[in-house]
Write a protein that binds this DNA or RNA. Structure first.
Lengths: 209, 209
DNA sequence: CAGCAACCTTGAACATCGTTCAATAATTAT
DNA sequence: ATAATTATTGAACGATGTTCAAGGTTGCTG
């Protein structure tokens, strides 16, 4: 009993690693079950003993990517201990760099759509939520008056904005933006967003202008 | 000769409209050539007399969507004539509303990937570039000192940031953000970005902080 | 109007997917 | 050792985008 299960788990790990390599080199669209089976040395049908379907496989790879991203962001926060503002800038740049260095794996996380009427399992959404905590701490230092919920919303807004810049910036579709230029633009806009948010917070809620 | 060509063009228009309806109701992944052929009343193979492949079809639908988006943004700019800041906020909100009301068509533009080694035709990239002009004008009013190239970069950064907020905000994947809340968040962040950019422009280039 | 060439349309066929499943092999329990 | 359970296989299924030879239409010409 134990022998069979061990082998199974080993194969499962191999499968996920092979899928990761395949996505990294050929993109999400280049992930093929038959190629995976050949790579890990089993029949194509056997893939479905290790994993329910390709959706799960992609999610498992995404989980690993998310973990590495988390580590990259942690490292960015740890380096030096500058102001909360600059910490947020560093996180944004680190996000940009990670996306550039892991382009296809990073894209796969956002390109992938579950097959109709089946939704993302809990363990996968939990993974994603973890990311915001890096942004949350510096933000809390900058806006001590705000409650946890409000901070959470601001954190998601900031993340989304930076994500958008990275996503469209790394797209080949439009004129390719050179990476250094993109990093600079991100730094400028993150500083601007924080400055702007703090200025408005300082003078309190009021009419538009 | 003319009769045949007329029919062809009519069918072609029907095809694109049918594809548009199909993407709108079933998403990009729900676009099937056989269903399209049945809908416009021709053999499945005939689709390839009207269009080179599905890539072109999706791009043609995208072109129409982009045109309607352009009109929506134009209308947002035209309504009243507030400050350039508030014009930019209106554009961002209009972008958000358009995406929400045309969710699948809007998503299709960004989800679609050309098949390998074939790249987006010129007429399609031109369509996309047109969008920035809405952002460009108010920005130019706010930053008279900046050159056209610098303004173009800032415009793209702003657009990308708002796009990110809309894209992740409308995603069901994470906790669904109610639309009014999303609109409010976008308005807040756009104002903050502009405030922050202007503040830094006013005191001129300098060290970080 | 008849004949002919150019073009169009058709739908069957092909290649490639993800996925399933009955048959076979391997492993475990008795 | 033998039976029972479980795992693995690879052929087959159903979709799907795309192609193409066969047959049908159209429009020009004598």
């Amino acid at each position: 009993m134990t022998k069979a299960l061990e082998r199974r788990e080993k194969l499962r790990a191999d499968l996920i690693l092979a899928a990761e390599r395949m996505i990294a080199t050929r993109g999400l669209a280049g992930l093929k079950t038959r190629d995976l089976a050949r790579e890990i040395g089993c029949a194509n049908g056997a893939v479905y003993n290790l994993v329910a379907d390709v959706d799960e496989l992609v999610l498992r790879v995404g989980s690993r990517t998310l973990l590495r991203l988390d580590q990259a962001l942690s490292a960015a926060v740890r380096a030096g201990n500058p102001s909360p503002q600059e910490t947020l800038v560093r996180i944004a740049i680190a996000y940009c760099d990670f996306a550039a260095e892991n382009l296809e794996l990073w894209r796969a996380m956002f390109e992938h759509r579950m097959e109709p009427d089946k939704d993302v399992p809990d363990w996968s959404v939990d993974d994603q939520m973890q990311l915001f905590r890096h942004i949350y701490a510096p933000l809390a230092a900058l806006f001590p008056k705000r409650g946890t919920e409000e901070l959470g919303i601001t954190a998601r807004s900031l993340f989304s904005a930076v994500h958008g810049m990275v996503a469209l910036g790394l797209e080949q579709r439009l004129v390719a933006v050179p990476l250094p230029a993109l990093r600079k633009e991100i730094a400028i806009l993150v500083r601007a967003m924080i400055d702007g948010l703090m200025a408005r917070a300082a003078q309190g809620p009021r009419e538009n202008s």
